[in-house]
Structure formats: C-alpha cells, structure tokens
Simulated scan of single mutants.
Amino acid sequence: MIGTIEPLNPIAFEIGPISVYWYGILIGLGAFLGYLLANHEAKKRGFPEDMLADLLMFALPAAIIGARLYYVIFRWEDFAGDPSRIFAIWEGGLAIHGGLIGAVVTGLIFAKIKGFSFWKIADVAAPSILLGQAIGRWGNFMNQEVYGGEVSRSFLENMMLPNFIIDQMYINGAYHQPTFLYESIWNLLGVALLLYLRRVNLRRGELFITYAIWYSVGRFFIEGIRTDYLLIFGVLKTAQVVSIITVIGGIILIVYRRKKGLANKRYLDDDTPPKKSGKKKSHGNKKKK
C-alpha cells in the first residue's frame, strides 16, 4: 500500500505554458473570503464603501512581499545558489509573520493618509486575517509543507482523518503530523472567538491585539512539533521567539493604552458625523400684537 501512495498534484490546471498552483488559489481564496467578511463589517462600522478595497490593493502585495522576504532572509542558504528562485512563490515559502508586518505597516500608512483610525480598521480586519490564514494553510497541505514529526499511519487514522489527508502526510518515506491542520483549526476557533468578542464591545484596538495573542499562543505550541521551520541564530525557532514577543508585547500594549487613555473608545462606538437635517430654520417675521 505504502509504495503506491502518490502525493496530490500541486498544480490545479494549466493554460498553455502557464501552471496554476493550488497554493496560490487557496491563498487567494482565503484573501477573498476574508475581504467579503471584513467589507460587510466595515460598512456597518461606518467606513466608506470602497475603503477596504482600496486598502487591500496596497496591503495584499505588501503582505506577499513581506512574507517572502521574511522567509528568504531566514532561509538564505536555500536561495544563495540560485537567487532567481526568490520569485518562485508558487513553490511555497511565505512566512505569515513577514506578511503581517507588511500588511500592518501598509495599514498604518493608509490610515494616516486617509484620516481613518488604524485601530478601528485593524479591529474590523482581525477575524478576516485569521480566516485567510486558516484557508491558506491548505495551500501548504497541497505543497506537502508545514508538517510535524514522524508518526504511524494508525496514529493518523485514530484522529479520524480522511484518507486524502493521511496519504498526503506520507512525505519522504514516512507519515508526519498534520501541523498545517492543527493551525487551520486553531485559526478557525480564533475567528469564532473574535466574532463573539465583537458583541462584548472591547476597547478599540483590543480585538486586533487579541487576534495577535491568540494566533501567537497556538503558533508557539504548533511550531514546537513542526520539522520544517525557520531558525534565528541557527538555534532558536524564529516563530516561537516572535510568538513570545507578540504575546508579552500585546498584553503590555493593552495595559499601556488603557492607562494612558488611548483606548477610551470602544469597538461599536460610531465615529461618523451626524447627518445634517434637510429642514431649514424659519426666519419669518412675526407680527407684533
């Protein structure tokens, strides 16, 4: 049986000489569904109808560039011999932390130029970012990356996984833990949590910070069992270091913003100016008695 296992084809379809990979399709699908979710909420929160589309036009390319640069920096030995492979993003190799840095920097600049509250935009986008990450991890699945240590087939079968996942986890002659799946499920749980916290009406900015903390906690533990990872100083797992910094920094930021009065507004507060009434005041002369 094992000798007949073939990995799923990472190429979805071909148009002449152009190959379209599942990796790109699934990342694009995650971004699209995330946009729909965020755009619906943005309208309810009083943003202009095209605001999010304008932001995405800049933030998505910045996120992809940031994600790729982050990965290449920590895996330079894989590209030093052939730097042209840096542009082959369809082969995989996009680091989420790098993508977040690119997107956040773009969001800060966009909000400053347009006169919007960055924290309000970030809160609206937080569940959508997690949704995009949850779907995007299945692109890693198609490329047979983001997996954990070796396990037996029975280990995977006892998890009640379908055969197509079990077979795809047969990599280099052994079965591996589907850490891509663990992270995808963790992210979907985070989406549900953030959607619930919208009703709680947290202080502005704290939905996004909660997203960063939630993702980082899950990523820290999942990274601990991954076998394909980036290293800092050749020793420490980069994602774990960044996760610890993010959790501690997020908690400090929440406390600091509250103490300094920088988080007095809440998520559901309406910033839109009141609409002017169409009625005109009467200035007619009154008859004297």
Rank of each mutant, 00 (worst) to 15 (best):
T4Q: 03
I5G: 02
N9D: 07
P10A: 04
F13I: 02
E14R: 15
W22M: 07
A31M: 10
G34R: 12
Y35D: 04
Y35S: 02
E41K: 04
G46N: 13
F47L: 11
D50L: 02
L52W: 10
D54R: 15
F58D: 06
L60I: 13
I64C: 09
I65P: 15
G66S: 10
R68I: 05
Y70N: 15
R75K: 14
R75S: 14
F79G: 13
F79P: 12
F79C: 14
W90N: 15
G92D: 12
G92L: 06
L94M: 12
H97V: 01
G99K: 04
K112G: 00
G115E: 08
G115S: 12
F116R: 03
K120W: 08
A125I: 08
P127R: 08
P127Q: 06
N143M: 13
Q144T: 07
V146W: 05
Y147D: 09
G149S: 08
S152P: 04
R153K: 13
F155Y: 05
L156C: 00
L156K: 00
E157S: 01
I165C: 03
I165N: 00
M169F: 05
Y170H: 09
T179M: 02
G190L: 11
G190N: 11
L194Y: 06
L202N: 04
R203E: 10
E206L: 04
F208P: 02
W214Y: 11
T227W: 01
F233D: 14
V235I: 10
K237P: 12
K237S: 12
T238N: 00
A239T: 11
G250C: 05
I254Q: 08
Y256W: 15
K259P: 08
R266S: 14
R266A: 13
T272F: 00
P274F: 05
S277E: 06
S282M: 07
S282V: 05
G284F: 00
K289D: 01
